[in-house]
Nucleic acid binder design. Structure first.
Lengths: 248, 248
DNA sequence: CGCCTCTTTGAACATGGTCAAATAACGTGG
DNA sequence: CCACGTTATTTGACCATGTTCAAAGAGGCG
């Protein structure tokens, strides 16, 4: 019964601890138009005023800005369960572009669906707001990483974060996850050249902190990696919140 | 009649183009408890679960994270009209701290006020949401700046942004604004050492792009500064939005 | 005046970028 | 399955940008 592809959204939003079973049912009743998109295709471009809200169902995508230099800094990674452009309903137009990094399956939700949810389902609304603030916390942490951490620790920190986020949507094992990006793309995320990404990666490998081969990242000792880069997942707001439990 | 100190909030939110005169009146009726806070005092600390939402009425404050290294990267500047912690109502706890940079006057709003607004005033809710997304856009741009722009252009870009933001709340002239930060603090924003801030500033001065003396920043030729760093205020979403005008 | 903080300067050093080329991996068509 | 072209990874050498450490001026404020 209902809509099973949206389960990945439910799985993510459940970490906000706002949703009830009834809300899950509501979400599962949303009619979805899904489509498959090849790798390296723009889903949305800067300046667009899209009619639909796009939800990633599978694959990896990114937010990026195109600079005059030709560089293409990546300012966010989007994974299954993430919305691309919830905020366009409020802001009116995109201030950045979104592209797939791998082949993706996405769902398109008409704005009316979102409007209806925000009108009639306060708990779901809060969960959606939680999701945008989740993204904002990540953005702050990336800014700190970029400004303050060494290349090695910055990269290690990113790996810790991605591991945690992939675990959220059941896309990681306790010690590994698929990491389909090229080193060049990883450099666009970390703000460093492809060459330096390569050297940094080799150092982390030499320390036995990670191994990246065949598009799969293995973390032999998660605790060791966490402590190497002082990873504290607090900014992801996943711990059970003691107060403000969802109303019955 | 009503509450004049909240005008700075109204002035900022008016740029979202969601609010009507009736909404302005609603906001002016909010009872405010204001207090003055000295410079360099924490308003909120990481991990706090504050009862009230804090609104800056005058002065400058910042979001920052305290690192193991003792460094204190600043991840946002808060100016009059900005909320400190709207998102705590959703996330439950702070993932960063907030400190004053100068003496500030702040207002404290009980969460119930926010809850009431979000319950009964959809246009105000959208304007508040707009404000959080405004912050997120800035965060993305800071990330791009940090990762991609040279020290000079990164600093120039920050000055352009601050000038624009101060203009929004009538705290800048067409060519200048008060800039009370030390070079060390500016370094915490830009992710560079105090020494390098000094040298970078001197270069911008030598190019006649800015002059910073006596805590006041002058921009002799705004267009020149914009084009020097390719500043495009699009990410601040201030242009009138063609669709989705506020309902009558 | 005297103290403290902020700004400025210099010199040595470290980190990461750029350029160029070699090697490896991947996908496609034969 | 192999040959080929293409893209990704790896390596080396040199260069640019920004850091660190140390110390000298300038300002602000009691």
């Amino acid at each position: 019964m209902g809509n099973v592809v949206i389960d990945v959204l439910i799985r993510k939003l459940s970490h906000s601890s706002f949703l009830t079973e009834a809300d899950h049912a509501t979400l599962r009743q949303i009619p979805l138009r899904t489509r498959s998109v090849a790798a390296n295709q723009d889903l949305i471009q800067e300046g667009d005023r899209p009619e639909n809200v796009i939800l990633i169902l599978s694959g990896l995508a990114c937010r990026y800005k195109l600079l005059e230099t030709g560089n293409r800094p990546i300012v966010a990674l989007l994974m299954p369960g993430d919305f691309c452009d919830l905020h366009v309903a409020i802001l009116g137009s995109m201030d950045h572009s979104i592209s797939t990094l791998t082949q993706c399956v996405v769902a398109e939700l008409p704005h009316e669906v979102i409007d209806d949810l925000t009108e009639h389902h306060p708990r779901i609304t809060r969960a959606l707001w939680w999701a945008t603030l989740f993204d904002e916390g990540i953005l702050r942490e990336w800014l700190v990483s970029m400004g303050q951490r060494s290349a090695q620790r910055q990269m290690a920190h990113l790996f810790c974060e991605l591991h945690t986020r992939f675990l959220l949507v059941d896309l990681a094992t306790p010690n590994a996850f698929n990491f389909p990006l090229t080193q060049r793309e990883l450099g666009d995320i970390l703000g460093m050249s492809g060459v330096h990404v390569n050297r940094t990666l080799q150092e982390l490998r030499a320390y036995n902190l990670v191994s990246l081969k065949g598009k799969r990242l293995e973390i032999p000792d998660v605790k060791a990696l966490w402590s190497y880069c002082n990873f504290d997942p607090n900014y992801l707001h996943l711990v059970p919140r003691v107060d403000r439990a969802p109303p019955p």
